[in-house]
Amino acid sequence: MNRLAPAALAAASVLALAGCASGHGAASASPSSSASNMQQVLALGRSMSQCARAHGYPTFPDPKVNATGDDITFSPAGGPDQTKTIFQALESVPECKAILDRMNSTAKKRSGRDNRQEPKPKDVPALKRFAQCVREHGIPEWPDPKADGSFPLHGTAIEAEGKSQRLLQATQPCQRYWSGRIAVS
């Protein structure tokens, strides 16, 4: 599973998909507050992309909002491991490190608001019910979870779709099966 906020590698990859789930009952921010926060996170991600380009990674991509709109992803040609490697290298560049630190700080604040549990292998049966429900509610291509509890969405059309109305409508009735985070791999 890839996460946006491991220590100073704040933006290394996809943060868990919040909003696709409920049932373990976590409160969320108001839509306008959430949208405003996401705009700030996206702006910070764009700054990171610009810093990466200016310091030796000219093809580093702009961030994209993930499938449920609760965080950002970077998708360089080399995948999440490439992102991690680039961010590790950029920690030695003061202006890039400052951006990484801010990304890490905002990720911690967001995760503090969102106390939903992380999926674990023991949660796979509930996650499978969630996946079946999502398929029944309009997203037939939604995959079953992997053995670690993550959903193999990285690089798929679902991930590229972002927080679409279709995704929100399909996942909302399925929240009774899973309210924790939905991790993407």
Rank of each mutant, 00 (worst) to 15 (best):
D101Q: 15
L42F: 06
V124G: 15
I158E: 06
A35M: 07
L167H: 08
E91P: 00
N2H: 04
E159D: 08
L42M: 14
N104F: 01
R129I: 01
E159P: 01
K163H: 10
S75E: 05
S32T: 02
R166E: 09
C174M: 12
K146Q: 10
Q82S: 14
L168F: 14
A5Y: 11
P143V: 09
P80I: 07
S105R: 10
P145D: 11
P6A: 04
S164H: 02
W142A: 12
E91S: 04
A16E: 06
R46N: 14
A126G: 03
S13L: 07
T83P: 01
P125H: 12
L17P: 00
R3T: 11
T106I: 13
L9S: 06
T156W: 10
M103F: 09
Q39N: 14
S47E: 07
K122F: 03
F151G: 03
P173I: 08
K128W: 08
T68V: 02
E95N: 08
P6K: 05
P6N: 06
S105K: 10
R110Y: 12
R116Y: 04
R113A: 15
R3D: 13
S33C: 13
E161H: 04
A12D: 02
L127T: 11
R176A: 14
A21T: 12
N2Q: 09
D71F: 07
Q117W: 06
E141H: 05
Q175K: 14
M1A: 11
S30N: 07
I158R: 08
R166K: 15
A126Q: 13
A131D: 03
T85D: 09
P140L: 04
P125C: 14
M1T: 06
Q40T: 12
Q165W: 07
N104Q: 02
H137W: 00
D70H: 12
E95C: 08
R135G: 03
A147N: 10
R113F: 15
D123H: 13
L44Q: 14
D148T: 00
G45R: 11
K108G: 09
A7L: 12
K163N: 15
A157W: 03
G79C: 10
T59Q: 13
G149L: 01
A27E: 15
